[in-house]
Simulated scan of single mutants.
Amino acid sequence: MENLRVLELYSGIGGMHYALKESGIPAHVVAAVDINTTANEVYRHNFPDTPLWSKSIEGIPLDDFNKLSVDVILMSPPCQPFTRLGLQGDIRDLRTKSFLYILDLLPRLNRLPRFILLENVKGFESSSARDLLIKTLMEGGYRFEEIMVSPTSVGIPNSRLRYYLIAQLSTETFSIQACSKILDAFPHPAESDSSEQPTVVSPAHPGSSQLDKDTEEGHFLYKLETMAEVQRKKNQNNDLSVRLIQGFLEPQSERNMEQYLLPPKTLLRYAMVMDIVQPTCRRSTCFTKGYGRYVEGTGSVLQSCMETEMQSVFTGLDQLSDEEKLQRLMKLKLRYFTPREVASLMGFPQSFSFPEHIPTKQRYKVLGNSLNVMVVARLLRLLVS
């Protein structure tokens, strides 16, 4: 196959670019486009030779797109208009303006791209923006497949359920059948068994299930967990197709992990709603851009002292004074995953790094806005093979 010319829109920190490299497809990114200055710094640091356009997509004229003459468009448009916890403004949200511009531009290109891959949050599949995308693709002669998968389906112990669309101009030999329903596993007969896709309860806000006082069942264990929640986590930890978290952790020394320990105030306030995982778990919840600043619903925290049993800490915890609670909770040495560990759980290779001056909070933020590299790499192989 000849070297494909790729346009990476909403390029962020380069998740799509890394996925392209991981896929092994002969291709090069002719331009990456993003307006986020921090993300662009990280992108330039990792891909210094890729032309990076630091401008709004809707500000780029049709002529400039035509000059690129691309074979592939990769894009991950802003998710806020579609996220379950947002206002769900859909196409009324100004943040969809650039995406609507792309849909308007696509049919007018001198040469249509042969392949398109789009990633977005769960919720996009029922939006008007998605309906417009499908209409544009069908009118342009594309065949497409829609898939909702989580990184657990490629053996990564992290829930990040996302919507993906892969499309190809139907003049090509197209091995993927366009399908009216959204698949919940990779569309490959040999690999779409049910074990690939464990049940994921809204990973965009995992803490909420712990907060719902499930009075119908009346079951409460330590923390505010229902029996259903406990069983779901147990099932995920028993899925041997998923790797252990310990394989994604940085080598620990007391000194370098000190800064990631949860502060006392946070422990006291959020102990009952945190999602706590251990190195031997095969699960963690979705890391969002608020990780490290907020606790509830932004991603799991790690128990780094394994000599202490979690149950012994949480049993009767609510009966204790703040001082006693703190003494108990501190024994677990709960810490945030480091940015490097979050990057690993999102499939970024060890060669990926941040410029030294980028603060930890900003690192979490740009990672939370990115995507899972391994999932996209697999979809790209499927699309282009």
Results as ranks from 00 to 15, higher is better:
190 A>I: 13
62 L>W: 06
315 T>K: 10
143 R>E: 14
349 P>E: 08
176 I>K: 01
293 R>K: 14
290 G>I: 03
39 A>F: 10
260 Y>C: 09
24 G>F: 07
260 Y>P: 09
273 V>W: 03
106 L>P: 07
90 D>G: 02
195 S>K: 14
119 E>K: 01
8 E>H: 04
130 R>D: 05
206 P>Q: 07
136 T>S: 04
255 R>P: 06
236 Q>K: 15
255 R>L: 14
357 H>A: 13
290 G>K: 08
89 G>W: 04
258 E>Y: 05
64 D>K: 09
30 V>M: 02
284 S>F: 04
297 G>K: 02
108 R>G: 02
317 L>D: 06
346 M>S: 00
15 G>Q: 08
116 I>H: 01
184 D>T: 15
13 I>F: 01
149 V>W: 01
126 S>K: 15
268 L>P: 04
196 E>T: 14
284 S>Y: 03
359 P>S: 10
14 G>T: 11
226 T>C: 05
342 V>H: 00
345 L>D: 01
82 F>P: 05
239 D>H: 05
363 R>S: 04
189 P>N: 07
361 K>D: 15
222 Y>H: 14
88 Q>S: 09
297 G>V: 14
302 L>S: 02
233 K>Y: 09
269 R>Y: 07
157 P>L: 08
282 R>F: 04
345 L>R: 01
264 P>Y: 01
285 T>W: 00
299 G>R: 03
313 V>G: 00
5 R>E: 11
163 Y>N: 09
133 L>Y: 00
22 E>M: 09
108 R>A: 07
257 M>R: 10
104 D>Q: 08
328 R>N: 08
80 Q>R: 10
255 R>W: 06
26 P>C: 06
18 Y>L: 12
250 E>P: 03
8 E>Y: 00
23 S>A: 14
298 T>M: 11
108 R>Q: 15
115 F>Q: 04
324 E>M: 08
102 I>V: 14
25 I>T: 05
36 N>L: 06
57 I>S: 00
217 E>D: 15
28 H>W: 07
200 V>L: 11
194 S>V: 15
366 V>I: 12
298 T>S: 06
212 D>N: 13
134 I>A: 01
283 R>H: 12
43 Y>E: 07
130 R>S: 02
257 M>L: 13
106 L>V: 11
321 S>K: 13
163 Y>Q: 04
302 L>K: 03
213 K>C: 11
26 P>W: 03
321 S>Y: 02
81 P>D: 07
232 R>T: 12
125 E>F: 02
